[in-house]
């Protein structure tokens, strides 16, 4: 079986600056794969190399077994892209946007009309068919960009921050559409700052920072490996820190809060409540956000 994306020792230089430093990963067909990392981590650069719009500097990058440096036209013909910034064609209506885009893929007019109707129905924009894109709301524009990315029935869909700036309703709708595409067998590659989004959608993910991959795995696996299953949050108070030191517990100070990592939260909670007489603590399941901050956060570490 051929992997959807294979990157080996991938590098990207901008003039003399190294933006992506020797990363390797593979994305299997039908998988939803996430790229996490702070701004400037190299996620978008990696996405642009996968899209064949930014040439790779060193290493190897293959999409469906095809080398990106040689087969960019072929690769782009079965790829759909939702860029970070909406770049709809402001000179056209919703329908015309999709029609003009379909021509770039050599889709015949009759077939294009059929697909446009299906896609507008899919993203709930049928009644906006003849409206200029300027007058659409942010959520509608994002849905239209998604529909546009699907006009060529892509096997791989690349989404760079798909729900940025959207209200919860619009985000949930985009997620629902992505899950439905996944069921149809589309390979989905996604970058996002919203870690709940990645946790919900992705089968596997990598966390990047400074152009390197820090960790890869399943969301649950990554959380388990770096944080454990649960987290106890307590106020940053000298007394509680003293208490934790005595217990030899693993904890981190995050500003005015202390995160205590523990496999057995009940035991720690009880200890804190009984021995330290410290009432304000909360136990909650660990999330990707905790992993993200632990790996990439700039803060005091104990």
């Amino acid at each position: 079986m051929v992997s959807a994306v294979i990157a080996k020792d991938l590098h990207k230089y901008f003039k003399d600056q190294l933006a992506v430093k020797n990363i390797s990963f593979s994305i299997e067909e039908g998988e939803t794969f996430g790229f996490l990392g702070p701004n400037g981590a190299g996620k978008t650069t990696t996405m642009r190399m996968i899209q064949c719009v930014s040439p790779i500097s060193r290493g190897k990058l293959e999409i469906m077994g095809m080398d990106t440096t040689k087969y960019h036209r072929e690769i782009k013909s079965f790829m759909g892209v939702v860029p970070q910034e909406n770049n709809l064609d402001g000179d056209f209506t919703v329908y015309e946007n999709l029609l003009v885009y379909s021509r770039y893929f050599d889709i015949p007019r009759g077939e294009a009309d059929k697909r446009i109707d299906e896609l507008l129905d899919f993203v709930h924009l049928l009644e906006k068919r003849d409206v200029m894109t300027e007058s659409l709301s942010g959520g509608m524009k994002r849905r239209l960009v998604l529909a546009r990315a699907l006009i060529n029935r892509p096997r791989i869909l690349i989404l760079d921050e798909p729900t940025v700036g959207l209200d919860p309703q619009a985000r949930h709708m985009i997620w629902e559409k992505l899950r439905s595409l996944k069921r149809q067998g589309v390979t989905i590659v996604i970058t996002s700052h919203y870690l709940d989004e990645v946790e919900k959608l992705c089968d596997r993910l990598v966390v990047m920072d400074y152009g390197k991959i820090l960790v890869q795995g399943t969301p649950g696996g990554v959380i388990e490996r770096f944080i454990g299953s649960n987290i106890i949050e307590a106020e940053n108070d000298p007394a509680i820190l003293e208490c934790l030191k005595q217990k030899d517990a693993s904890y981190e100070i995050m500003g005015d809060i202390v995160h205590i990592y523990a496999a057995n939260t009940a035991e720690i909670s009880e200890y804190l409540l009984m021995e330290c007489s410290f009432p304000k603590i909360t136990a909650r399941p660990a999330t990707l956000e905790d992993v993200f901050l632990k790996l990439t956060g700039r803060r005091l570490r104990e």
Binding site: V53, R73, V81, N87, Y104
Partner: peptide, 14 residues
């Protein structure tokens, strides 16, 4: 301003 070229190069056009 319109980012039209960016949108087009994501398709088989160079």
């Amino acid at each position: 301003y319109q980012k039209i070229f960016d949108a087009i190069v994501a398709t088989p056009l160079t």
